[in-house]
């Protein structure tokens, strides 16, 4: 974790695009920072949010957030795709949300999942932060027993880590178009909801975009990702950040479950980190691209002028036919 703090400070000092911001404090009083990548502009931009490391043992997730930032900064000048969406969108990246748990998984228990809040006079530890959000909190796929791995906390947003995310997202929610939360393992792109089988109003579009993203991902190394609603293809859960983000009005909200399918699970080998990041990058940029095109359609110059030409032609033809 020290390395990640150092990396964040370093990257802020070495790029004009990146600024580090305070998000909040953890139970053990560590500071949570997020990175903002934005190109200077006087335009009113929208926001893409991505968080990693809400579950401590899913080490590939923080690795991906760092990879993502590195790739954007390395390529924004040369990659027209990135250059284009950065004109309209700011990227908010939270490399590790559950810092206490993450450190605990390095130092003490590799397979630790939750945060490190003490309960019952310190006889048991940890709330599952991804059951702690205020979205049908405590209704399904949770436990009220603090020794459970899916303990949902003493109430919605009972944990400081949860509140830190909520506070920022609430304050910017009118500008946030997309909420991505990165986990492992299983190879899924999951849509809302986990707490009910009733699909969200924009389900068709959510599914379509996720399927396009999964197809882009597969092109790199042939890795198969399954796409679908959380309650259908993973399991029912309540109080997740993904459900909450969609419920407060963020239209594109997805959970990624990165490699693998269960052979190594949480202890993904080093030699799979880079390929995992590379392929996931393609999926994530596909989603961002779609969001960009949808909300800032002016950027698609060729398509627009082409169709404009066509309609002018048609008008001309029609004028000829109907004098």
């Amino acid at each position: 974790m020290e390395e990640i703090y150092t990396w964040m400070a370093h990257i802020q000092n070495n790029s004009e695009l990146v600024t580090q911001h305070y998000l909040g404090k953890t139970v053990e009083n560590r500071t949570i920072y997020y990175l903002q990548i934005s190109q200077p502009s006087d335009k009113n931009k929208k926001i893409i949010w991505m968080d990693c490391g809400i579950h401590a043992r899913e080490w590939i997730a923080p690795a991906f957030c760092q990879w993502f930032v590195k790739e954007i900064l390395q390529n924004y000048e040369t990659d027209p795709k990135i250059r284009k969406f950065l004109q309209n969108l700011d990227l908010y990246i939270l490399p590790v949300l559950n810092i206490d748990g993450y450190i605990y998984s390095w130092d003490t228990a590799r397979l630790w999942r939750k945060n490190r809040s003490p309960h019952m006079n310190g006889t048991c530890y940890g709330t599952d932060l991804n059951r702690n959000f205020n979205s049908s909190w405590g209704t399904v796929g949770v436990s009220y027993n603090c020794s459970s791995e899916i303990f949902c906390g003493s109430g919605p947003e009972s944990e400081p880590e949860t509140r830190a995310v909520v506070q920022l997202i609430e304050s910017k929610k009118n500008d946030i178009l997309c909420f991505l939360t990165i986990h492992s393992y299983g190879q899924y792109i999951l849509t809302p909801y986990g707490s009910t089988n009733t699909p969200p109003s924009n389900n068709e579009e959510l599914m379509h975009v996720a399927q396009t993203a999964a197809a882009a991902l597969m092109e790199k190394y042939g890795t198969i990702y399954e796409v679908g609603s959380t309650s259908l293809i993973l399991y029912s859960n309540s109080g997740s950040s993904r459900d909450w983000a969609h419920m407060i009005g963020i239209p594109f909200s997805y959970t990624f479950e990165l490699r693998d399918k269960g052979t190594y699970g949480f202890v993904l080998p080093d030699d799979q980190i880079q390929p995992t990041c590379e392929e996931t990058m393609l999926a994530v940029t596909t989603i961002i691209d779609y969001v960009d095109q949808k909300y800032f359609p002016g950027g698609a110059m060729i398509l627009t002028s082409g169709s404009l030409g066509l309609s002018l032609c048609l008008t001309a033809v029609l004028t000829l036919i109907v004098p």
């Binding site: 397979l111 999942r113 599952d128 796929g141 436990s143 459970s148 791995e149 899916i150 993973l234 399991y235 029912s236 859960n237 699970g265 949480f266």
Partner: peptide, 11 residues
């Protein structure tokens, strides 16, 4: 050995 159990997430 440790077995990862879903959906309870226990080991």
């Amino acid at each position: 050995i440790l077995l990862h159990k879903t959906p309870t997430q226990e080991m």
